[in-house]
Design a protein around this nucleic acid. Structure first.
Length: 562
DNA sequence: CCTCAAGGCCAC
DNA sequence: GTGGCCTTGAGG
């Protein structure tokens, strides 16, 4: 290697800013390019199992000048931006390389290309002539895969605080290398692999009430090149078998750091570190103010996101659409001209509007960039839709069949599955099981949020953190029931993706039927078409599932005439 | 042997 | 507790 080559290949973080505090980046630390101080802070926090309590609203601004003022918000920001607690070694072994090494390398290459392609945007106001680059968590963090079975990363011992027993699925992946994948993942990747170009979605963008300019600005910084794979998973290495949550054994996990998220209430005074160091004096101070001397930073940081992280199940439930909504949609759609598929698509179209409305009003979803919102919706809408109808069915809000204008009686299951009648009995069985298990509003709420924050999008820290919060809030109210419901949720998720796959197959297998569904005006069909016809079409790049799925194998497409 | 992301040290 | 600098050591 020549000196010149060495110079080129040497990591150059010159000018890079720490995504947590804006200080100068010194290298990759715990999965993220950060400064030396945030590295040290993160390490100390995790090693010493510190739990901080924000003295304000858990939304303190964090920058280089005030990063010391609120360790709680600083640590939260570390996590939000993508630092990984798993990268802090339990055995404190020095030196060597960990399993992130290859990802750091890939990320560097990624970054190199990104920098070459990066679009700089000069504010039109002319207030500053400094070109401004945009970055996001996804820009800084190293996407994670968890297939390395030789990892020496271990979790720390279990703690007994109630709120600690939920882990992110990412954590589960890490802890169980043999379970690091599942066929479910591949199914969702068929539907939506992260990192593809988002275009031709003007209608969805309009629904999201944003402009395409956002997309144009942001796109190059996130996915500069279509051929550069956004890399949460190496598809070639994954042979998904279980949903990792099924390994949780009723959510009594061995360890995790969920409690290091800002906690809404103080469980024990001793568990909270305050800057007054009360432990050294033996006095238990009231954990109210992180720093009694330093003023809080004035600018709020991610306030709305933090609000979501702090909300409980009851608060989450309040955001759900009215129960009668889905009934109204069914009743309105049954009067529309067209056969069963048309009925199903009309219902889906109308419910999609409700789903988009709900999603964009979610504090966390609303914070995502437009293309991320669209990615997320593309992956999740069908699951949310199926969850909605499932919930309505369980509670008897829908009649089992609807007579449409052709005179045909269409079962709710056929509508729920977008016309895919092959699995209607499977779905009916799911409805019955959930009903027998005592499916509550909380469970519906959790299902809906878990569907929205789809696990295949967990490479976005915000999404995985949101999932964690939902799971945690859900477990707080439903305790041991969660595990059982979770496996059924996975069945629903698979069914919903199969239904989408089926609907898209009509386009080639039954073009006349497809055309009758008015693909030019249907939001749902537009969404499906965009997924299937995007430049890096995953239908041709994702290997086929090698492990047949229970119940939902790639069944031959059957157009069931009535 | 070199790299670089871990942990450690210690002045502040 | 913080953060800059040092040491370590697996992997390339």
């Amino acid at each position: 290697m020549t000196d010149v080559e060495r110079m080129v290949l040497r990591p150059n973080h010159e000018g890079e800013q720490c995504p947590v505090c804006g200080d100068r980046v010194s290298g990759y630390h715990y999965g993220l390019l950060t400064c030396e101080s945030c590295k040290g802070f993160f390490k100390r926090t995790v090693q010493n199992k510190k739990q901080y309590q924000c003295s304000a609203d858990a939304n303190c601004h964090v920058d280089r000048t005030c990063r010391k003022r609120c360790p709680s918000c600083r640590f939260q920001k570390c996590l939000t931006m993508g630092m990984k607690m798993e990268a802090v070694r339990a055995d404190r072994m020095r030196g060597g390389r960990n399993k992130f090494g290859s990802f750091y390398k890939r990320d560097r290459a990624h970054r190199l290309q990104r920098n070459a392609m990066r679009v700089t945007v000069i504010p039109s106001s002319g207030v500053t002539s400094q070109p401004q680059t945009f970055y996001t968590p996804a820009d800084h963090q190293v996407s994670s895969s968890t297939t390395d079975q030789n990892t020496h990363i271990h979790y720390y011992d279990q703690t007994k605080v109630k709120t600690e027993f939920i882990k992110t699925e990412y954590d589960a992946h890490l802890q169980s290398p043999t379970l690091s994948s599942s066929t479910n993942q591949q199914i969702s990747d068929f539907i939506m692999r992260p990192g593809y170009l988002v275009d031709h979605q003007d209608s969805i963008a309009a629904l999201l009430n944003t402009t395409n300019e956002d997309h144009l600005i942001r796109f190059p910084t996130t996915y500069p090149l279509a051929e550069v794979k956004q890399e949460p998973f190496d598809y070639s290495e994954h042979h998904f078998v279980h949903h990792p949550l099924l390994e949780y054994q009723g959510y009594t996990s061995t360890a995790n750091y969920a409690p290091m998220m800002p906690i809404p209430t103080v469980t024990t005074a001793q568990s909270v570190v305050t800057s007054t160091s009360s432990s050294t004096t033996g006095r238990v101070s009231e954990p109210t103010r992180t720093s009694p001397v330093l003023p809080l930073c004035p600018a709020p940081t991610e306030k709305t996101v933090d609000h979501f992280y702090n909300s409980n199940m009851a608060e989450m439930c309040k955001t759900l659409p009215d129960d009668s909504q889905i009934i109204r949609i069914f009743n309105a759609a049954k009067g529309m001209k067209g056969e069963a598929h048309s009925f199903a698509v009309t219902v889906a179209d109308e419910n999609l509007k409700v789903i988009v409305d709900w999603a964009k009003n979610n504090q966390l979803f609303g914070k995502l960039q437009l293309d991320d919102q669209m990615n997320l919706l593309q992956t999740s809408w069908s699951t949310v839709h199926l969850v909605d109808i499932t919930n309505a069915m369980i509670h008897g809000n829908l009649s089992p069949t609807y007579k449409i204008t052709t005179g045909e009686d269409v079962s709710v299951g056929a509508v729920a599955l977008l016309g895919y009648r092959l699995y209607v009995n499977t779905w009916n069985d799911i409805v019955n099981r959930l009903r027998n298990m005592g499916f509550t509003k909380f469970d519906y709420c959790a299902f809906r949020f878990l569907a929205l924050f789809d696990q295949s999008m967990d490479h976005f820290q915000a999404v995985s953190a949101a999932r964690s919060r939902v799971l945690q809030a859900w477990a707080e109210v439903r305790c041991s029931f969660v595990s059982g419901f979770m496996s059924i949720f996975e069945e629903i998720r698979r069914l919903s993706h199969d239904a989408v796959r089926y609907l898209w197959s009509l386009q080639s297998n039954f073009p006349e039927l497809w055309a009758s569904l008015r693909p030019d005006t249907s939001l749902v069909l537009e969404m499906i078409k965009t997924s299937a016809t995007r430049p890096t079409d995953v239908t041709s790049t994702v290997p086929h599932i090698s492990v047949p799925l229970q119940q939902t194998t790639y069944a031959p497409v059957v157009y069931m005439t009535s």
